[in-house]
Simulated assay, not measured.
Amino acid sequence: MTFNKKPYLVVFLLSLLPTSGAFAESSVNSQRHEFIDVASILPNAVFDIRYFTEHNFVGTAIDGYLAPKCLLHKTAVIGLQAAQQQAQQQGMSLKIFDCYRPQRAVDHFVRWVNDVTDTKTKSEYYPNLAKKQLLGDYIAAKSGHSRGSTIDLTLVDEQGKELDMGSPFDMFDTLSNTDDPRITVQQQANRYKLKTLMINAGFSPYAMEWWHFTYQPQAYPNHYFDFVIE
């Protein structure tokens, strides 16, 4: 008796291929060449990449940040160029805190928020909330930053001084809501300067965090990248 070997060969070759999920992940991560180092495009912007340092709400350098760089998908960079141009025309400049964020960094945040014994940054970053209350609106298991189109930033004047926004970057409190009624008229005006610049450049604001904006449409709205920043 003889057998047709072709079906067995096909099955064997298929077994060597990655699963559909792994294949999709590999395919998505291969798009990292579409991400641009924003400093190479906006040399006059100010960069303070907090998660590369210990100066952040976790209190330590964050997983995946091997260099203090702002990476964004090339489509979002076009919008950011427009925002910086508008800012400079008004005697200001963008100051950038965070851009693309690897999924492993988000995982680091989640591990931190679940460690209720670690509260060393509470007084600075979440003085009025219990740590467990940060899950959801402030810290989630998936972040738009990992898609490459979201950025955290503020404005500085000609001397490089940050405009008074009424609360610092990454302060988890309703005080950081764009329209919180407790801020002064000048602080609200400063928030709206930033908000107007970013909206005009194609970014959508996040009402709970005055510093958070996402370029629309997002290049990869359904994927979360995990390549390191280096």
Rank of each mutant, 00 (worst) to 15 (best):
H108P: 01
H73Y: 03
I78P: 04
L134Y: 07
Y65N: 07
L16W: 05
L9A: 10
A189R: 11
D118T: 12
K122W: 06
A39G: 08
R50W: 01
F23M: 02
V58Q: 07
I41H: 03
P221T: 11
K74R: 15
Q218M: 14
P102I: 02
I49L: 10
I229F: 04
K131M: 15
A219Y: 09
Q81N: 04
F47V: 01
S204F: 12
D115M: 05
S27N: 09
D115N: 14
Q159K: 13
E124V: 02
D37E: 15
Y138A: 12
S123L: 07
Q218I: 10
P217K: 09
L9Q: 09
A189I: 05
Q89A: 15
E230C: 07
Y65R: 06
Y126R: 01
V110S: 00
Q186S: 05
Q216W: 13
L17F: 03
P7R: 09
F57L: 10
A141G: 10
D118R: 06
W211D: 08
E230N: 15
A140F: 14
L14K: 07
Q187M: 03
F12R: 14
V228K: 13
L135Q: 10
A201P: 11
Y138E: 08
S146V: 06
G160I: 03
Q86N: 13
D37V: 14
Q103L: 11
R147Y: 03
L175P: 05
Q84L: 11
M165G: 08
P181I: 06
K142D: 13
T2W: 02
Y206L: 06
L42H: 07
D157S: 11
A22N: 14
L17W: 01
Q81R: 11
N222S: 14
S40G: 15
V228G: 01
S176G: 07
W112C: 03
M92V: 04
N44P: 03
N29G: 06
P221V: 10
T75R: 12
L135S: 07
L194H: 04
Q31E: 12
K195D: 07
G59V: 10
F109L: 15
F52G: 00
H108F: 03
Y206N: 09
A141D: 10
F97C: 00
N177D: 12
M1Y: 12
